[in-house]
Design a protein around this nucleic acid. Structure first.
Lengths: 135, 135
DNA sequence: CTTGACCCTGTAGTTGCTATAGGGTCCATG
DNA sequence: CATGGACCCTATAGCAACTACAGGGTCAAG
C-alpha cells in the first residue's frame, strides 16, 4: 500500500483503537468512509488519522460521542466564534464536577458502612444491615 | 387485594422504582417471581418489598447488578462469615476511589484547556487545538 | 500453493434499564 | 349492565459505546 495510505489495522495501532471501534465510528458518522483498495480494504490517509486522534482524545477526556460529533463539526468551521466550543467544554466540566461530588458522598457512606464491619457472621454483618430496609 | 399483598404499581411507588425495572429485576433473577392473582397480576408480599429495597439501596450505593446478586445470596446465608461481604464492599470502595482520582485528573486537564480559551474564532480556539493531534 | 495475518460484512452480546405495541383486568360511575 | 380509565400483562426494540463472534475474502511470504 502506498506512501501515506493506512490500512485499518495500521490506523488502529497508531491511535490505540480497536479495529471494530473504527468501523463503529464510521457507521456512526464520526469518521468519514475512506476510499477502498481494489481488494475492498479501507484505505485511510493522514486526514483520517488526524480526525480519529481528535475523536480518541476527546473520548479520553470523557466527552460523549454526541459531544465529539459537535466538537468535530465546530472545528470544521474554522472562522466562526468558538463560544459554542467553550460552552460544550464548560458543560462537560460541570458534569464532571457533579460526578466527583456524587462519588465522594458515596465513598463517605461506604466508608462508614465498611468501618462498622466486625467480620463476624452475616447475621450480625453491619454492611448487610445497612443495605437492609428495616434497620 | 388482601392485607399485605401489593401490586407491582404499589411496590414501584413504595421503592421509587419503575414498574418496568421491577419486571426487569425479576427476569434478571434478582427478585423472585411472586405469586399471581387469578387475573394474572403479580402479587407481592413484604419479603419482596424488603428484597427490592435492599436492591435499590445497593444500586444507589453504586454496586453493579452482579455485586447486588452476590450480596443478596450472601445475606441469605445468615450464619456464614461476612468476610465475603466485606470483600465486595471494599473492592467497590477502591473502584470508587479510582474513579474519583480519574475524574479529578480529567477535571484538571479540562480546567487548563478551558482557561486558555480567548473566545475568538474556532481557528484560534485553544480547546480545539488541545484536542487536535499536531499541536 | 499453501499458510497465516490481515481484511470484509453482518449480527448479537454487554449493562441497566426504558419505551413501545398490542392486548387483558378491575373497579367505579352513569 | 355497559363503559371509561387506571392499571396490569407479554414481548420486543432501543439507548450508549463499544466488543465479539461467524463466515467468509485478500495478500504476501516461504
Amino acid at each position: 500500500m502506498g506512501a501515506n495510505i493506512l490500512t485499518i489495522g495500521h490506523l488502529a495501532r497508531k491511535t490505540d483503537t480497536k479495529v471494530e471501534t473504527i468501523r463503529f465510528y464510521e457507521k456512526s458518522g464520526l469518521l468519514p468512509a475512506p476510499e477502498r483498495t481494489k481488494g475492498n480494504y479501507r484505505a485511510y490517509d493522514l486526514a483520517h488519522l488526524g480526525r480519529l486522534s481528535f475523536i480518541r482524545r476527546a473520548r479520553d477526556l470523557g466527552f460523549s460521542l454526541d459531544q465529539v460529533r459537535e466538537l468535530l463539526s465546530l472545528s470544521d468551521n474554522r472562522n466562526q466564534s468558538c463560544a459554542a466550543v467553550d460552552a460544550i467544554a464548560n458543560e462537560h466540566r460541570s458534569e464532571i464536577e457533579r460526578k466527583i461530588r456524587d462519588l465522594q458522598a458515596l465513598k463517605l457512606e461506604l466508608d462508614s458502612i465498611i468501618d462498622q464491619c466486625g467480620c463476624g457472621t452475616v447475621a450480625e454483618c453491619r454492611i448487610i444491615d445497612s443495605l437492609s430496609p428495616s434497620q
